[in-house]
C-alpha cells in the first residue's frame, strides 16, 4: 500500500480530468432533473387545484408511487425497462445521445417532482384563507391571485422543505452510476481502479459532495433569511 499522497492524485492530469468530468456530469444530471422536477411539480399542483376528483386521484397515485418505490428501482425501470419498449428509431437516437444521462435526468426528475409538489402544496395550505379573500376583493383574477399573492407566500413557507429535497436530489444523482452514467461516483471508481489511491480519491469526492451539499443548504438558509426580512416589513 502506498503512503497517503493527495498531490499524486490531484496533480496527475489524467485523474484530475476524470474527476473533473465526473463532477460536471453530476452537476448536469442534478441541474437537469431539478429543473424537470420543479416544472412538473407546479403542473401537478395545478392539476390538483382544479378540484376534479379524477385529477386528484391520479396525482395522488403519481406521488404515492414515486415516494414509495426506491429511487434506484425507478432508475432501473426507466433505463432497462421502459427504454426497451420505445420504438427502434428513438432507441437509436437515445443511444447516440448519452441515453444513460437522459434516462437518469428523466427518472430522477419525475421522482423528485413528487416531493417538490407535496412541499409546494403544504406551503400553499399554510397561507391563511383571508389572503384568498383579500386578493379577490382587490379585484385579482384567479391567476393574478396565485401569481402575486398566494404563491410568493407559499414558496416562503415551503422553502426549508424544498432546500432539503434539493440536497437529497443532488445526493441521489450518485445513483445514476448504477445505470452507467459517468458522474462523480462513477469517476471515483474508475480513478480508484487505475491509481490504487483508494483513500485519497474517496476523500476528494466526499469533500466535493459535502461542499456542494453545504453550499445548497447555506444558499437555502440565506434565501430563507431574506424572505424573513421581507415578512417583517
Amino acid at each position: 500500500m502506498q503512503g497517503f499522497d493527495l498531490a499524486a492524485l490531484l496533480l496527475n492530469p489524467q485523474f484530475a480530468a476524470m474527476l473533473g468530468h465526473g463532477l460536471v456530469m453530476t452537476f448536469v444530471v442534478a441541474a437537469g432533473s431539478w429543473a424537470l422536477a420543479m416544472a412538473l411539480a407546479f403542473v401537478l399542483l395545478a392539476v390538483r387545484l382544479t378540484g376534479s376528483r379524477i385529477a386528484e386521484a391520479a396525482v395522488g397515485l403519481y406521488i404515492s408511487y414515486h415516494r414509495n418505490v426506491p429511487t434506484l428501482v425507478q432508475l432501473m425501470l426507466w433505463y432497462f425497462g421502459i427504454a426497451s419498449l420505445l420504438p427502434d428509431g428513438l432507441q437509436e437516437w437515445l443511444s447516440d445521445h448519452n441515453a444513460e444521462a437522459i434516462f437518469a435526468v428523466v427518472a430522477l426528475g419525475l421522482c423528485q417532482a413528487a416531493y417538490f409538489s407535496e412541499d409546494l402544496r403544504s406551503g400553499l395550505r399554510s397561507v391563511g384563507p383571508g389572503q384568498t379573500e383579500a386578493a379577490r376583493a382587490l379585484g385579482h383574477s384567479y391567476l393574478g391571485m396565485m401569481r402575486f399573492v398566494l404563491m410568493p407566500q407559499a414558496l416562503r413557507h415551503a422553502m426549508p422543505a424544498l432546500v432539503n429535497h434539493t440536497v437529497s436530489l443532488f445526493k441521489n444523482s450518485s445513483l445514476a452510476m448504477a445505470i452507467g452514467v459517468v458522474e462523480l461516483t462513477h469517476a471515483v471508481r474508475e480513478v480508484e481502479n487505475e491509481s490504487f489511491r483508494t483513500f485519497e480519491v474517496y476523500l476528494v469526492a466526499t469533500a466535493l459532495y459535502l461542499l456542494c451539499s453545504l453550499a445548497i443548504m447555506a444558499g437555502g438558509a440565506m434565501l430563507g433569511a431574506r424572505d424573513a426580512q421581507v415578512g417583517v416589513r
Binding site: V167, K171, L175, T185, Y202, T206, Y209, S213, L214
Partner: peptide, 18 residues
C-alpha cells in the same frame, strides 16, 4: 449529522466497503 446529510449514501457504502 451534517456529514451524513451532505454525502450520498452510495459514497458512505464505498467508504465502509473499503
Amino acid at each position: 449529522v451534517y456529514a451524513v446529510r451532505g454525502v450520498p449514501l452510495l459514497m458512505i457504502i464505498f467508504w465502509v466497503y473499503f
